[in-house]
Design a protein around this nucleic acid. Structure first.
Lengths: 123, 123
DNA sequence: CGGTATCCCCAGGGATACTG
DNA sequence: CAGTATCCCTGGGGATACCG
């Protein structure tokens, strides 16, 4: 097996891709909400504090494209669109959960490190 | 305990912070390299393909500020600076490992979903 | 209701030159 | 060697207006 093969990205690149996917400004919030239950567009918009209509659309389109979210249109009047996590999306939640635990466990340490660093820089 | 307390960020925000920290363009590559052993500045620069001097500096400063990396200066001529992961940085590696496994396991699914989505969009 | 389309701004990040 | 300083450009993302 060739490690330099351009068609087989390194693990680093794969991790980078995942982070690029899920590390944008809004994805985590949307995914977190959909973890509980399917939601409609404006319902999400109201729930995700501060998101613009444009960014909600882009975020959902991206998730849909990667197979993490399904978009279901009910051809009623007025139209109704439901967004829901796919099975793949559910597995992503597990990853984020792990990240959340790490964040909670280590935030005090990080905050302290930051304060110490900034104090040194300011002197 | 109050969940709406502004001094206690939601878990979503914490995850978002971690992702913002580690989800930038270069951090994963640098952290991955330092996981093996401490490295010098230009050594890192050569190892991380395509990174600019400026961005390597900024990335390392950020990691140092958050207590994930230590910076050790040896006052020799020419100067020598070693960067190494802290214990906290090591725990981060564990998280990234998990992300990497998820990425490897699910990439085929994601690639397929993307192809399918793009095919629909193009028709 | 659930979007597109358009305009605009600013931070992330590259290239280059200079320094202790 | 290990940076800082400066310039510049792209694209992420907000605000607003319009559409089926």
């Amino acid at each position: 097996m060739s490690l330099g093969n351009k068609h087989e990205p390194t693990q680093c690149q794969l991790v980078g891709d995942v982070l690029a996917r899920v590390g944008d400004k809004w994805t985590v919030f949307v995914v977190r909400l959909l973890a509980d239950r399917p939601m409609r567009f404006n319902e999400l918009k109201r729930a995700v504090d501060g998101i613009s209509q444009r960014m909600l659309t882009l975020t959902l389109r991206g998730l849909e494209r990667d197979g993490l979210v399904t978009r279901t249109v009910y051809p009623t009047v007025p139209p109704r669109v439901d967004y829901a996590l796919t099975d793949l999306g559910q597995t992503l939640i597990t990853m984020l959960q792990g990240l959340g635990e790490w964040a909670i466990a280590n935030r005090p340490t990080i905050v302290a490190a930051r304060a110490a660093y900034d104090a040194r820089a300011a002197e």
